[in-house]
Design a protein around this nucleic acid. Structure first.
Lengths: 117, 117
DNA sequence: TGTCATGTATAGTATATAGTACACATTTAG
DNA sequence: CTAAATGTGTACTATATACTATACATGACA
């Protein structure tokens, strides 16, 4: 199950149909890794790259960073920091939200955005 | 700033006043690490231990696992998994909650617990 | 006063993480 | 038809992570 590799290879090839600059080599150059390495990543020959490299990749391919990190089996370090500052509170909240349907969570996000406190 | 080490040394020594079984060596034995290693952890001579070892330590010392993991600079892998399953939703929510005061978050936890969806 | 438990210093190890470097065969484009 | 660009196979490497093993000095206590 090399979700990550398949995903970015598909995405890159899609973009490439419109824009030749999305060759493996050119993407690799822009995100500053060796072409051979990106090749191995796309084919699932190696584990997904570091957070930093994943984020560059997300930007280059126009993908959601959190989604791409999730596919890489990671959670953004800025989120982790937020949790670590109030571990009990956030751990509790997240575990409770585990079973909540999307719309319930969305409603909460909306409420908080509207500054309900 | 070796928060983790200081914290568990203090905690262990506190417990020890009531119970001789909280010597460094005996705790180390129960959580299945070498005494020398636990010693170095407590003095901040090495980085905090793995998640698994931190959890054993939390149990032995009667501490909140999420808090101890936070002091170790980590976030519980079960929380990470929850986030990774719905990355956009949870990333959004957590970032919005960053500025929210504790009582606002507590209210939300309560609402969700009461099954408001 | 000897022995038993305690904490620690020193040295070493296995595994994972995150890549680089280079050569090579194949496609693509002028 | 050839020069450049493309993707990939192979062989390394540096650094971090997470510890173990052994030996030793110190203090308690019976």
């Amino acid at each position: 199950m090399t979700q990550f590799g398949n995903h970015i290879r598909t995405r890159r090839e899609d973009l490439r149909k419109q824009d030749r600059r999305f060759s493996l080599r050119q993407v690799a150059h822009r995100i500053e890794v060796e072409p051979a390495y990106l090749s191995k990543i796309e084919r699932g020959d190696v584990a997904p790259p570091s957070e930093a490299t994943t984020l560059k990749l997300a930007r280059d391919l126009g993908e959601d960073p959190d989604v791409l990190l999730a596919l890489a089996g990671k959670v953004s370090s800025d989120l982790q920091e937020i949790i670590r500052k109030r571990p009990r509170l956030f751990a509790d909240m997240i575990r409770k939200m585990k079973e909540a349907p999307d719309h319930a969570i969305l409603r909460i996000v909306r409420e908080v955005r509207d500054g309900e406190w």
